[in-house]
Design a protein around this nucleic acid. Structure first.
Length: 270
DNA sequence: ATATGCACCTGTGTGC
DNA sequence: TGCACACAGGTGCATA
């Protein structure tokens, strides 16, 4: 589900409520392939105190005061939602956390693609280093340069590559390309410096706007308070195949690029 | 180097 | 109504 803006939204809400709190209980309800199972994980986590919660790429990082960290990837359908003490677990809940002061959190994941890993400070650094720069921290020039580097690749595939730029997923790749007036299938070698700069700019713009609206709920996504993101109402192409382009009223087309559904306006995007 | 296919899972929507 | 199939905010690996 979540891309950078959704993970950022959840991150801010978690940090606000959980920073400084100690974990007092952990209940593993469903352990899948990527779910920590058993007593070791629980025993290691109980008693740790959250220093703060950060986001890097699409990862949520619970940093503990002992310098270890819990790294979470929600993948397609993962959720982290605050729950009430009388909450009844659903079949998709994987782990329930209780913090001091009674705050509780549920991690659920319908498709079970997501993971949680408890790592030491060293391993965390290595994990984080593998990603490209954060688009909202990097300059337009740096982003444009990185986007231009793999010359023969399609621009959409490059946007989705987490080692080029971190945090961009299918929705915001399509939205940024529409705003920049670029076809997702364009090869990078064909992009002018100005076009790359334009794309870097629209990418940052669309990510920032989506964060302000607490993300996009195309389907299941909800934030940590269980609320849907409202950027869904401002999408220009994603999920709008056949509907009118907001700029020129031409019907939006849907094709497959880099194995992903890809939406674009055949007139505005060249 | 890049693209493609498939795998990991479950749920939902579509068309017959 | 039932059933088969395509597809879904992500990523990783094996093969062309």
């Amino acid at each position: 589900m979540p891309e950078l803006p959704e993970v950022e939204t959840i991150c801010r809400q978690l940090d606000k409520k959980l920073a400084g709190l100690k974990i007092i209980s952990v209940r593993v309800l469903r352990s899948g392939r990527e779910t920590p199972r058993g007593q070791r994980f629980v025993a290691a986590l109980v008693g740790k105190t959250v220093q703060r919660i950060e986001r890097r790429a699409k990862l949520l990082i619970f940093r503990f005061v002992d310098r270890s960290a819990l790294v979470v990837h929600l993948k397609m359908t993962g959720r982290l939602v605050f729950i009430k003490p009388n909450y009844t677990p659903t079949r998709h809940d994987r782990i329930l956390f209780e913090f001091r002061s009674g705050v509780r959190l549920a991690w659920s994941d319908v498709r079970q693609f997501g993971f949680m890993r408890l790592v030491k400070a060293r391993d965390l650094e290595a994990l984080i280093a593998a990603y490209g720069p954060e688009p909202l921290s990097a300059s337009d020039a740096e982003l444009a340069d990185r986007l231009r580097a793999p010359k023969t690749r399609r621009i959409k595939a490059t946007l989705l590559d987490q080692t080029v730029i971190a945090g961009v997923g299918n929705i915001y790749a399509d939205e940024a390309l529409h705003r920049a007036g670029l076809r997702p299938t364009r090869r990078l070698a064909s992009l002018s410096r100005a076009e790359c700069a334009r794309l870097a700019h629209t990418l940052k713009q669309v990510l920032a706007e989506a964060i302000e609206r607490r993300g996009t709920s195309a389907n299941d996504y909800v934030d940590a308070r269980g609320q849907r993101g409202t950027f869904s109402n401002f999408l220009r192409v994603y999920g709008r195949a056949g509907a009118a382009c907001p700029a020129c009223a031409t019907p939006i087309k849907k094709i497959v690029v880099a194995q992903r559904g890809t939406h674009f306006c055949p007139v505005c995007q060249t």
